[in-house]
Design a protein around this nucleic acid. Structure first.
Lengths: 319, 319
DNA sequence: TTGTATGCGTTATCAT
DNA sequence: ATGATAACGCATACAA
């Protein structure tokens, strides 16, 4: 592999001049510039970017932590991240964690080891305290509201959205409302759960802990939820489903089993994933692509900001 | 940032010894080892991985080129790639190309610049000739059959699969068969097209170029296909749909419009995506996760091999 | 078992 | 405008 020293020799100049030419710096005569360029051509020279990284202390790489990519929520978020990263001329280093803390730790360590310039954590498994420890090594952005501190975030007010949706259902007559969620333990999940119970307090509704279904990610999970709902007495008359994919599973299962939607069961999905439009599912639109873009922006500009993104109810045929 | 020289000074040893301790090399006394470890702890030292990269000439990074991640086909492929990369202790650098040649070129150049140790191209936009130019810089694996040469590949025999599916439909009485595809121009697409026309030759069936629909990726595209099919006279009685997501769009549209499947229109989807199981769509199962794993294997073991993966018809309710 | 010296390829500083 | 030289931080051949 040829390096700039070789080029310098060939072109009869110093390495500095070569570097200048390579990086389009000013103060280099046309003559020498051409000599260098000629050497570059002749040797098919290409920079060893690792040397650049070492020298500069930057890699133009952003780490992206997410549990899995084969789910519309994260796929759309990733899409936005990829788009914006491209505009900022940065590449993405992917950490598919399956919610394993050890893999998240790896990502944080890459920040410390300077393999990445910043880190976007789409959904975390480890504690905020641990994440904060790595803050000195580079910017980190999250998808949940973090007040104060040096962590940026782009987030949805899930408490408010959930409450609004519940109130909406209440207004049209529902009092037995359940919800489906992925993990029970995330910050966003806890906010939604709080909204759920606050709502029940507010309207003095009976508590039905069995109306809460977790581990809901895919179509099959929707199917599973419905089969459990069918065995309940009384069953919920409406469900908030935090992924349209799960909502789709419920809707399709209902169709198969002649369960009428929304008469027998009302459904509000989340994310406005493509399938929701197709199946005419009422959903809360979350602008995931926009969120992804903003996360990249936050990481690269290093402004520490907490940006709330608003979600909107899209009324379709399942309520 | 502290470096190994600092550690050496602190521990009263040489940088070599520090390096040995850091990399678990033999021939270092417990005493000195502990001294080094103590210094590491005290300074919260972490390697600058870029220096390692430069020194070793390797990064433990694999580049992954794909047009988009928010499609089940690529999402599942990526899932397999991520799994296997984890086992091999490598990370993934993502190149979302949108089929733009310039972005694919970037990925190839990263190989040349030694930012990645190998490259997996899930679907390519640029020519084989161009890809081959970059082969000297590192292993490359593709998802299409490449005979001879130094490029590895993990592929499906799309000609055979397509032909089998067509013959299957022919046997149960279909003679007016169409197909939906994403890009017209990829190698895999051309193989399928060849099978399509060879099939028509073989059984002396009339040619219906209008039965071919391209740019089919999502649910909406399925919807669009159906609306065009409805206006045809005669319309096709069966469709091969190279993504279950598109097939789902067709099936759902048919349900809405009281078009009976498979009586009015038979559908065979591809990939056995989750939605296919949910909607009981007959499909060709392509083990994408396994393919992804194998691609990583090929890139990292550097064996130049062309591995065919077999696909299987899963008969469900749409034929 | 340990240390010295050099290479990895580039960028940045400073002098001229 | 140009160049010599020192970082950048680590790995490793070779010597001891």
């Amino acid at each position: 592999m040829t390096n700039i020293r070789d080029l310098a020799k060939m072109a009869g100049v110093s390495v500095t001049t070569v570097s200048r030419v390579l990086n389009n710096h000013p103060y280099v005569s046309e003559e020498k510039k051409n000599a260098v360029l000629k050497a570059v051509k002749a040797t098919r020279y290409h920079k060893n970017i690792n040397a650049v990284h070492l020298s500069k202390g930057k890699t133009k790489l952003i780490g992206v932590v997410l549990p899995f990519t084969d789910h519309p929520y994260f796929a759309l978020l990733l899409k936005g991240i990829a788009k914006q990263a491209l505009e900022y001329n940065h590449k993405l280093l992917l950490f598919q964690t399956d919610y394993m803390e050890s893999r998240e730790t790896e990502a944080l360590q890459m920040l410390q080891q300077k393999q990445i310039d910043g880190l976007i954590i789409c959904s975390r498994a480890c504690s905020m305290r641990k994440i904060e420890e790595y803050l000195p090594f580079g910017p980190i952005a999250l998808c949940e509201c973090v007040k104060g501190g040096e962590i940026s975030s782009t987030y949805i007010d899930h408490y408010k959205i959930f409450m609004d949706a519940l109130e909406f259902l209440y207004r049209i007559g529902h009092t037995k409302i359940g919800y489906c969620i992925g993990r029970k333990s995330g910050t966003n999940s806890r906010n939604r759960d709080k909204a759920y119970w606050d709502f029940h307090e507010k309207y003095h509704l009976p508590h039905h802990p069995e109306y809460i279904f977790d581990q809901c990610y895919d179509y099959e999970d929707g199917e599973r939820v419905l089969s459990r709902v069918k065995e309940m007495d009384p069953p919920p008359s409406a469900l908030l489903v935090t992924s349209d994919q799960v909502a789709a599973g419920i809707v399709i299962s209902c169709n198969k089993q002649q369960i009428s939607i929304p008469d027998d069961l009302a459904i509000i999905g989340f994310d406005n994933e493509p399938i929701a439009g197709m199946l005419n599912i009422t959903t809360i639109d979350i602008p995931l692509v926009e969120m992804g873009r903003n996360l990249v922006h936050q990481v690269l500009t290093k402004e520490i900001k907490n940006k709330e993104i608003s979600a909107t109810l899209i009324e379709r045929g399942t309520v």
